[in-house]
Design a protein around this nucleic acid. Structure first.
Length: 854
RNA sequence: GCGGGCGUGGCGAAAUCGGUAGACGCAACGGACUUAAAAUCCGUAGGGCCGAAAGGCCUGUGCCGGUUCAAGUCCGGCCGCCCGCACCA
């Protein structure tokens, strides 16, 4: 019996596909287009199981769409700028270009070994000057359009990576990459005006039905839109201070004003008030230790000043500097209404300030309502508020707004949590910012005919700091406006800029312009984007912004880059530790009967929980090892089986073996089938139904049901269910009688092979050939189910007595209710359960169930 | 604290328009083939009870309660786990 030789088959078919350029996508076609994209990889060195899962899912979809007759764009590239290359240069003295190119070479080979249906002619790396040149053009265009600006701001400084970071890149007070505690610094930096699009980016989330709810919600929260009122209080020293509030309806419940310790006025006052200066310094100290924020008690410093209530000049409120007021949000100053804000309440209790409820829940008399430890933030009627009394919250908000606007003290305002995107990085291995600093002319963009600004090839990495900055000559140039000496900007762009438009460049990688509008008009938006949830905010928000910016500049016509988004789960594995608590890798461990031992010494090993594969816990399995052992189809099949794609999957050796057995099983079913008519000569009308006739019909039904189910499951990216359906069909074929009609068996086998093809493409080609075909299965159409075979003429339904299953009946699908009722009452188990009792009621749900109620 | 998601066999999971719970896979067990092993094939299987068997009965989807002829699915209240944001005015 011939075993399937995966290694031979896979390299052979990969060669055949490459030779006929099978996956090259023309930029125009009469076929409908489908753009399938997985998040492109960072060339870290080797592909890992996460990549395998990601690219397998995308590949199944790309091949499925291709079989359905689409012109499919499925490209691959490299997110190739970034710190690891620069760190390698520092640690090993390797040129980042060389390091990156070597990694790409290795990883490209590994991806090709997976048999991905990729148009490799479109491949590029973001570190290619031919890519970043266009990015520099876009930067200059953005600058001209006012979408880029330079500003001095309090920024996040990552002391380990030695660079600033955007807000999105600070996770729990730490740098997203280094994990170092982020410090605040005041620096002049470049920003993208993403806040210009805050409303668009927020509201358009509702028009992305094929995005996960979770991601949309995360983006919504990140943008953090709140509507309210900005208005001023007059202080006892004659100055005025502006606050922002979403609850102007509670203005008569105010009992204090509070400024952020970083507020300019607090800073100024502290210069003549040493006690305040000490308080501000203390807040700053605690502020950076992020763990402290969580538990930090509210505290404040009474400035001794008072503020006039906007509606009553005789009502004076104390003015504090308080540790819980943030300078980075709103105006850095608030009015405190303790009864209706928990933070204000805690503050008021500590300093003995009044707590006056002004919103009273419906049905409670104002005098019966008081606040103890919990503030009240629900709806209700306004009380204790003069002209607002009796109104509901919304009406009171509107009334306060109108009065303050009329008196010129305030105006409606919408605030966002979202900040502009800081894109400067004090690093070498990135896209140079094409800007010059001239003492006479100020900031001057590099003229287009001098682009690209190339990275110097002779940078030194043995000095601390930014290599571009301490390069002896690179930054010195001449100002294109006045001709005098000027300095290049020595910062490079955040690498998230590189990945914010690569999907548009894929549409035409040879275009003279950054974005070919004809090609993007044809291909964009991406029909299905697939990647990890870790980019829910970062990359996906930036790419959405970039697309809108490109549209504003006339480069693209769409608002949203990705009409469908799928976030796949991680790949996990059991963890192992020896008696000393040292982590062990799976290949150092031998398992039998649930007990694990060291392979070398036989010493016992403790099996830990399954966690995301990571080098630190050594629970990694290298994809190339598995491909080498079983082939790409086996690893692909594993990634699709059992676990829903959005959940974390656990890699197990036993599961991989099971997949390998199935590969062999399919091959055996195909190669051991006998009595098959030649391809194209089957005749299902005149098939010989004698002998195994009933079985033949059953097999045809199983085959066509499989088509219907697998098609539906692939449409919904429910790969695990599609896999289960394919197992069922294989089981049905295996269980069918040996003498079954050859035409029927051929039909079943061909359907099986075609359904398997997007998932295990090499095996499918080999089987297709073994079935006598000379064409490639990748050129075959997706099978279509015969509806008459999908639905059978009879149905088997359960019969319940008082809600408990007591029997089942098989009956004509279209039988009327009376017939079903009679059959149900006559069923064995039903008669027994009734034991002569007369049913009170019989509920018949056609084609589903019968329930007999006594 | 706020927001979201999830709790189903030994394990991954199906069943979401309320209608036979556990499809399919992994692991396990029994058997066949084999000198033996591998590979393969057949069979068993939520738990419990009755029965020689065929089969039957009870019970079961985190817990408590409700709606319904019927609840894994809907509603109310708990418990547990995971994720995101976190003093955002």
């Amino acid at each position: 019996m011939a075993r399937y030789n995966a290694k031979e088959s896979e390299s052979r078919w990969q060669g055949v596909w490459a030779k006929c350029n099978a996956f090259a996508a023309p930029n125009d076609s009469s076929r409908p287009k489908s753009y399938v994209l997985e998040m492109f990889p960072y060339p870290s060195g080797r592909i890992h199981m996460g990549h395998v899962r990601n690219y397998t899912m995308g590949d199944v979809l790309a091949r499925f769409r291709r079989a359905q007759g689409c012109n499919v764009l499925h490209p691959m590239g490299w997110d190739a700028f970034g710190l690891p290359a620069e760190n390698a240069a520092r640690e090993q003295g390797i040129d980042p270009r060389v390091w990156t190119a070597a990694n790409i070479k290795t990883m490209r080979g590994q991806l090709k070994a997976m048999g991905l249906a990729i148009d490799w002619s479109r491949e590029f790396a973001t570190c290619d000057p031919s890519y970043y040149a266009h990015q520099q053009k876009l930067f200059v265009e953005f600058h001209r359009a006012g979408l880029v600006y330079r500003a001095e701001a309090d920024v996040n400084w990552d002391p380990v990576d030695g660079t600033v970071l955007a807000n999105e890149q600070v996770i729990e007070g730490r740098g997203w990459r280094s994990g170092a505690l982020v410090e605040r610094r005041k620096l002049a930096q470049w920003f993208f005006r993403i806040t210009d699009f805050a409303d668009e980016l927020l509201f358009a989330l509702d028009e992305l039905p094929r995005w996960p709810e979770k991601v949309r919600l995360m983006q919504k929260n990140w943008i953090g839109r709140s509507e309210g009122l900005r208005f001023a209080f007059t202080l006892s020293n004659g100055e005025s201070i502006e606050v922002f509030s979403t609850r102007p309806d509670t203005l008569f419940g105010a009992s204090f004003l509070a400024l952020s310790p970083e507020h300019p006025m607090a800073q100024r006052l502290s210069s003549s008030d040493p006690a305040l200066a000490r308080f501000v310094a203390e807040c700053r100290r605690l502020g950076t230790a992020e763990e402290a924020i969580e538990t930090a008690e509210k505290s404040g410093y009474d400035t001794g000043m008072t503020a006039q209530h906007p509606f009553d000049p005789d009502w004076k409120l104390p003015v504090y500097v308080a540790n819980f007021v943030l300078m980075g949000y709103g105006t850095g100053a608030i009015f405190g209404c303790p009864a209706h804000d928990q933070r204000d309440l805690e503050f008021a209790r500590k300093y003995g300030l009044p707590v006056l409820p002004v919103v009273v829940p419906e049905g409670i008399a104002p005098q019966d309502f008081s606040i103890d430890r919990e503030s009240y933030t629900g709806p209700g009627r306004i009380a204790n508020s003069r002209f607002l009394d009796g109104m509901n919250v919304e009406a009171a908000k509107a009334e306060v707004r109108q009065r303050l606007e009329r008196s010129g003290k305030g105006r409606a305002a919408t605030l966002y949590r979202l900040r502009d995107w800081l894109v400067s990085r004090q690093r070498y291995w990135g896209c140079p910012i094409p800007m010059l600093h001239c003492d006479a002319c100020g900031i001057v963009p590099v003229p287009e005919n001098e682009l690209p600004v190339l990275l110097p090839a002779d940078a030194r990495f043995d000095l601390p700091g930014n290599p571009l900055d301490h390069h002896p000559t690179w930054k010195h140039t001449w100002c294109p406006r006045c001709g005098k000496a000027a300095r290049r900007d020595t910062d490079t762009l955040d690498t998230f800029v590189d990945s914010s438009w690569y999907f548009a460049r894929f549409c035409n990688t040879a275009a003279a312009e950054p974005v070919d509008s004809t090609a993007t008009h044809y291909w964009l938006p991406v029909n299905q984007y697939i990647g990890g949830i870790e980019h829910a905010i970062l990359h996906l928000l930036y790419a959405r912004f970039f697309t809108r910016a490109l549209r504003r500049l006339g480069n693209v016509e769409i608002d949203e880059p990705f009409s469908g988004l799928f976030t796949q789960g991680m790949v996990c594995h059991e963890t192992y530790r020896d008696a000393n608590g040292q982590w062990l890798s799976p290949d150092e461990v031998e398992k039998s009967g649930g007990i694990a031992r060291r392979r070398d010494t036989g010493a016992p090993v403790e099996i830990g929980p399954s966690e995301k594969m990571s080098k630190s816990k050594k629970n990694v399995v290298a994809p190339e090892t598995i491909i080498d052992l079983y082939g790409a189809d086996t690893i692909r099949w594993f990634m699709l089986s059992d676990t829903p794609p959005e959940r974390d999957i656990e890699w197990t050796e036993a599961g991989a073996e099971g997949c390998w057995r199935f590969v062999q099983r399919i091959y055996r079913l195909v190669t051991e089938a006998s009595g098959l008519p030649n391809p194209g000569t089957t005749n299902l009308e005149t098939a010989n139904w004698g002998g195994g006739g009933e079985a033949a019909v059953e097999l045809r039904r199983a085959s066509h049901r499989a088509i219907a189910w697998v098609t539906e499951d692939l449409e919904g990216l429910r790969f695990n269910r599609a896999v289960a359906r394919i197992y069922e069909l294989a089981n049905a074929i295996g269980a069918s009688p040996a003498n079954i009609d050859g035409s029927v068996r051929r039909e079943a086998l061909e359907i099986l092979v075609r359904l398997v093809a997007p998932m295990m493409p090499h095996l499918a080609e080999s089987c297709w050939q073994a079935l006598g075909h000379t064409s490639l299965i990748i050129d075959g159409a997706w099978p279509v189910a015969d509806p008459d075979l999908v639905r059978s003429d009879t149905v088997t339904i359960a019969v319940q007595v008082d809600g408990k299953r007591r029997g089942e009946i098989t009956i004509e699908r279209e039988a009327d209710a009376e017939t079903v009722r009679a059959a149900a009452l006559g069923a064995d188990g039903v008669m027994r359960a009734l034991a002569g009792r007369v049913p009170r009621k019989v509920i018949v749900v056609p084609q589903r169930i019968v329930n007999v109620v006594t």
